[in-house]
Amino acid sequence: MGWVNIIIQGGLLGGLYALFAIGLALSFGIMRLVNIAHGDFIVLSAFVAMIVSAGLGISAIASLAVVIPAMFALGYLLQRGILNLTLGSDILPPLLVTFGISVIIQNLLLEGFGADIQRLHAGAIETESVILPGGIAVGVFPLLVFVLAVVCIAGLQFVFYRTGLGRAFRAASDDPDTAELMGVDKRHIYALAMGVAMAFTALAGVLFAIRTTFEPSSGPIRLIYAFEAVIIGGLGSFWGTLVGGMILGIAQAIGAALSPTWQILAGHIAFLVVLIVKPSGLFPRTRD
């Protein structure tokens, strides 16, 4: 009984981790770009939402209507203006440039907002819960986050495998030069992909900040969760990312149940086990 509860709560938390991971998986899948600043963009989105909801007097959820487009635009411009210049056979430039961006964002947030712990508010939904059959109470908000993660992934999966834009994404990922021959402007497609990645990052950041507290230095560990979810899931499909997130969430929940100090460590251990047993993840890409 207790364990079922733990696994359900952990699985739901995995929905949030999957949302963290989508942006990372997208930019790696399409541009082979690992964005070290990914976690800091999650936190940046939370701060933007905080300003928007305070400024307009709306709830954090409603602020998504502003934060998502804003982060999409930021992602587009960042890729077009900076990150496209770093792509090539050498892995150092993208890595070190996003690393630099990460440090810049963290310290700008620190200068602007101080090191205080912040939280976003979304009203009554934060505390409501429903009773599942079997008497297990789950929070409405975690459930909502999980459902959103499933919807997002289904949507991405559809766009990727059923639309012209998705074909262009996959073609640019396979062979950017040949994609250009088809009329695909790779700089634009990459920027779009980063825009989309950043839109999901915005959603993840706001939901995360409603669920837990955050501060300017909260980014790196979110990058690590996202990374672990991606590696556990493998790069075969976005559904793998969801499974990866859920495994990470469940491992953390089990760890936390044993002892609070074990929560995060248990997640890392799950990651290590997958890395050692099956380095390409549970749902690997068949070709790379």
């Binding site: 900076i82 210049l85 770093t86 150092l92 430039p93 070190l96 440039v97 690393f99 630099g100 961006i101 990460s102 440090v103 810049i104 310290n107």
Partner: peptide, 10 residues
């Protein structure tokens, strides 16, 4: 420092 490093890399 971060900005200089980014600029150098680019």
């Amino acid at each position: 420092l971060g900005a200089i490093a980014v600029a150098v890399m680019l």
